[in-house]
Write a protein that binds this DNA or RNA. Structure first.
Lengths: 246, 246
DNA sequence: CGTTCTCTTGACCAGCATCAAAATTTGTGG
DNA sequence: CCACAAATTTTGATGCTGGTCAAGAGAACG
């Protein structure tokens, strides 16, 4: 949680905002792979973990960076994106508290990860994390489960991009959002949108204008009501589900 | 698995074409997760493995089937697809010799898997496979690596679907195909296409007409030459890469 | 408040889908 | 091996969804 991150002390300059972690008190632990590490072994985790705080817009890793660290999100929201050589952007997904970053063992990152809003992540040097992985089997099992979930999510996105209309994509996206942020569940029937229209567009393979028009259509259809730019209320879940193509 | 779920045919073990396997002699082993199992332990694998042969068009699993088995492809090519409730189809990917099916630990399959051509897979009851997994760590590590690769592939597809034109998608697809079938590398500069235009279209989020037109454009641009409907020759790799948007 | 950024709305356009038909390939029985 | 039927692919004509360009309306921030 943001409060937790704020309470950690600021540390050495090689990574702004870095500080030691206290895993036992971490609010994100129940939703994280770290939940697989028994309390008795938490010291092992803490020994290699450092908290990194990010401001809105700040990059955690960039496409092409060497994969020297892996991360666990503890607060806020991040965006995972990729660029075509000529600069078109696709947002592969969003990461919230509890999400693990670095499932792939590739030598370099093939995604860019940036904070949508003030965020905090736990940073682990990859080599040491893998040492721990070799000792704590349940950690590897938890990672495999995470990887499976990420794969399922990516394939759901493929279905949406390949065969759904703009309206269906937006509706499906809105329906899927609440489940992704376990630590900050919005009031029932409300959806928090920490990302801009452009970011939603890049995620859904559309333009920001089309996303905006689709929002308008959902409002006119009585499916949603716009509380603010960053929050919508689901007026009719049925209408929204129907717009999503069930 | 499909036989378990819906078909009550006459085969001795209710699975046509099933037979015991000899892993040591398996041509697909070097490319499979099974490569992680040392020769000394192959008997453990063989004890729970059964070979299943599939004819062209035959389904291995269908969306919604209980996930009672996992599979390893040993020959041929398969198609992984998903349907929207109203019947639009997206082909999530293709599987070739060496590919593992069942990475997700979901209770039910969320994809339908069918043979593009005569194919063979190794079938493992999931429960027994997981027992083996618990004993042979390197198997789990290999699965995690596979899951990472599958995730990277799905995310590359997301980028293509979200931000690439029809021509770019087809060219990218053609460039990516040869790498996916390690056991049957086509003659250098040739690409085997065991799938129909409709299947390519469903994979690229297009219609078969658009795929056909894009083939024609690639031919006219001097990038490829059509040897037959199921094989193309790359005349100019540069032109093809350029069409793919690098 | 005014500057700036983001979002919404409108007018027009292009790429791909749809509908339709011809050409080619594949499969089957004689 | 040939002839015919069925399926797949290619090509063409036309239309629609969503992109592009442009202007105006809210929000956010100093």
């Amino acid at each position: 949680m943001v409060e937790l991150a704020r309470s950690t002390r600021t540390a050495p300059d090689d990574c702004p905002g870095a500080g030691s972690s206290r895993c036992a008190a971490c609010a994100a632990r129940p939703f994280s792979v770290c939940a697989a590490v028994p309390d008795a072994d938490l010291a092992r985790l803490e020994a290699i973990a450092e908290t990194v705080r990010l401001d809105r817009g700040q990059a955690l890793v960039r496409e092409g960076d060497p994969g020297t660290c892996v991360y666990n999100v503890t607060a806020g929201a991040l965006r995972l994106s990729r660029l075509t050589p000529d600069g078109r952007r696709a947002v592969l997904g969003f990461a919230f508290a509890g999400d693990f970053l670095g499932l792939d063992r590739a030598p370099a990152w093939y995604v860019t990860i940036e904070a949508l809003e003030p965020a905090a992540v736990c940073r682990f040097p990859r080599a040491r994390f893998e040492t721990l992985l070799a000792e704590r089997r349940e950690l590897e099992t938890a990672l495999l489960a995470r990887a499976s979930d990420a794969l399922a999510a990516a394939q759901a996105q493929v279905l949406a991009l390949a065969r759904k209309s703009a309206l269906e994509r937006l509706a499906s996206f809105l329906l899927s959002l609440p489940a992704s942020d376990p630590m900050r569940p919005p009031p029932a029937g409300h959806i928090r949108l920490p990302m801009t229209r452009q970011e939603i567009a890049d995620h859904l393979g559309l333009t920001l204008e089309t996303v905006s028009r689709s929002f308008t259509r959902l409002k006119r259809a009585g499916a949603i009501r716009q509380v603010s730019l960053t929050e919508v209320e689901v007026v009719s879940g049925g209408a929204l589900a129907r717009a999503a193509g069930s």
